[in-house]
């Protein structure tokens, strides 16, 4: 399959390793990956913070960049959630019938990485090897907006050497919430505190998720506390094979 990578500005700038892993993984599975350099940001941060007029040109830009792509895959549930769940609302707000039509045509072609692997490509064993104790945090957007279900867990269970531990109260939000983490930093931290306790209870070395945004929040606090647990994007684990780990 010819896959167009939607890297997301966040991964592009702060977590390029997740993007590199996504490319390596998809190529290893026999697919062609392209990267359209004109892409920047999907507009989620602007839209969800209320700067919606400012987000509309970014929605238009995304549509322009990916208009003719066969499938678009991103290592981020929340950015895919923006496109699938909120682009229609943005296009309505713009009051632009052409944009409304284009968004409708684009939405069914945009996928988050793990749902794409399991539901579209129907692969669970991607040939990965990762001999570490790992716990999985289902991010809110992967769970409740995209409804990826157990796709990430199926992929992780098939990784050789990986010791998967269940995260207690896994479905509870970690408290990131985009600008919520800054605007309501105290409440965000109160939520994060419980997530950190759950992560540490598992005695895992690695906390993994499908969103680097939530992981930056969880990982930033684990690092501050010298907790001895690191965070990784699921693509990084799935890309690792015998010899790398």
């Amino acid at each position: 399959m010819h896959i167009s990578l939607f890297i997301t500005c966040f991964n592009d700038t702060l977590f390029p390793q997740a993007g590199r892993a996504t490319v390596q993984l998809l190529e290893r599975l026999g697919h062609t990956v392209e990267f359209r350099r004109e892409q920047t940001c999907c507009g989620q941060m602007h839209f969800n913070t209320g700067y919606q007029r400012e987000a509309i040109p970014l929605v238009q830009r995304f549509v322009d960049v990916f208009r003719d792509a066969e499938v678009i895959v991103a290592p981020s549930a929340s950015c895919v959630g923006m496109v699938r769940d909120l682009y229609p609302m943005a296009a309505q707000l713009a009051g632009d019938p052409a944009l409304i039509r284009e968004v409708e045509s684009l939405r069914p072609r945009v996928f988050e990485l793990t749902e794409f692997l399991v539901k579209q490509l129907q692969v669970e064993d991607v040939g990965a090897y990762f001999p570490h104790r790992v716990t999985y945090h289902p991010t809110c957007h992967s769970l409740r907006v995209l409804r990826v279900g157990d796709a990430p867990l199926r992929l992780l269970r098939a990784v050789r050497g990986l010791d998967l531990v269940t995260l207690p109260d896994a479905e509870q939000c970690c408290g990131f919430g985009g600008t919520f983490a800054i605007k309501n930093a105290d409440t965000s931290m109160a939520m994060l505190g419980d997530k950190l306790r759950a992560v540490r209870e598992t005695r895992a070395e690695v906390c993994v998720a499908a969103d680097n945004s939530c992981l930056m929040h969880i990982g930033g606090a684990l690092h501050r506390q010298r907790a001895g647990v690191r965070t990784m994007h699921i693509a990084e684990i799935l890309a690792t094979t015998e010899g790398d780990a």
Partner: peptide, 13 residues
């Protein structure tokens, strides 16, 4: 309450 990772040497692009 949280550390912030720095922007790595090389962006994805």
């Amino acid at each position: 309450t949280r550390d912030m990772p720095t922007i790595p040497e090389q962006t994805f692009r």
